[in-house]
Design a protein around this nucleic acid. Structure first.
Lengths: 196, 196
DNA sequence: TAATGACATGAATAATGATTCATGTTTCAT
DNA sequence: ATGAAACATGAATCATTATTCATGTCATTA
């Protein structure tokens, strides 16, 4: 029986959530190493020790945030992609949904990327799972003639790489990102490549 | 006058280099946080205090490794690309050179990526510089009709994203990476996109 | 070969921050 | 209304490591 059952009262639920949100903010702005539990509880307006009522430790909150992000991104992209007509449409919509998500929750996305170093297993599982689903979509699309034939696994990772890097450069780094431009230009390359 | 002048004797040079190589290994395998100076000096067969004769501190060795990596990658890619006929050739050669570099020095590459969190300024400068050069190449290639018209800045970052992600997934994660396959499939997508 | 600057040593220092725990307070089912 | 279970508190503990420094040894040169 885990010592860290979910809270049972309304108050407990609220506290746990407050700590989680404070952790998102602190991890997202300071990074894992510089984030202190004291700072997290301070921002959650609660006592230091309260943290340990809800979480086994620093790494575990972090992991929970990574998983939360995973669910949110997948949900957001899946929804955006559902509306799309064919696979190319879906690629465009997925790229846009991803970039808008990064713009909306930069902290959360920074946390996922830092997980590569803080909790490599969680990071790997997150992206491997994502890639597997992506790959399946591409295989199906190829069968339907919506994309040209090609190695779906390599393509899936290459496409994820494009999204991640464009997000980092043009959304996180830029103050006023022009997401439309990045989506348009990025998608054009995904669709047609750079051959003359 | 900096307290950390370069070593003046053969012995000093060798020690400094031994520490640098040990640091590469330790940072590369354990990550920045888990790496201890004691472990680094142990692997360099030297005393703890000796470290501070050659480096101001932990972050500074790390930064030096990031910069070293920058020089090595650029040099390697530049050389590989020089041999290429046109820009498309160069893209293929550059991707392959990059992946082979990651395979040869996985520690060094991990360090560069972790720099995003340990020393964001160094990381940013490294990639921004790289991208600027890349972008210039693409603009020139477009003028020469070797690639289709398109936003060179977005393209440069997208292409770097592909290389980084394919390297992480198929070189770092795989025990026996099939670099040829990844280059072939990745390049095919870069050239022609995924449109049917 | 003596003097000097360069280099080497590792025990001691010092700061940091995660985690624990003994002692209250609040909630809520009965 | 009440008592047990949940929840809250924050000072004290504890472990970890980066960095310093007082004391040597080595290499080079005059």
């Amino acid at each position: 029986m885990s010592k860290f059952a979910r809270p049972k009262t309304k108050r407990g639920l609220a506290r746990r959530e407050a700590i989680l949100r404070a952790a998102e903010e602190v991890f997202g702005t300071q990074g894992y190493a510089a984030a202190s539990i004291a700072e997290i509880t301070r921002r959650a307006d609660t006592a230091l020790g309260t943290f340990y009522i809800y979480f086994p430790g620093k790494e575990e909150v972090f992991r929970e945030l990574v998983m939360e992000m995973g669910k949110l991104t997948r949900a957001g992209i899946t929804e955006a992609v559902q509306r799309a007509g064919d696979r190319l449409d879906a690629e465009r919509a997925g790229l846009e949904a991803f970039l808008r998500f990064v713009a909306a929750r930069p902290s959360l996305y920074r946390i996922v990327e830092e997980a590569r170093f803080v909790d490599p297993e969680a990071y790997r599982q997150y992206f491997a799972g994502f890639a597997r689903a992506y790959e399946a979509q591409l295989i199906e699309a190829e069968r339907a003639g919506e994309v040209s034939p090609g190695d779906a696994e390599v393509r899936a990772w290459a496409l994820m790489g494009i999204a991640k890097t464009l997000g980092e450069r043009f959304v996180i780094w830029d103050d006023a990102p022009d997401i439309d431009r990045v989506v348009t230009e990025g998608f054009a390359m995904i669709r047609d490549g750079i051959a003359p």
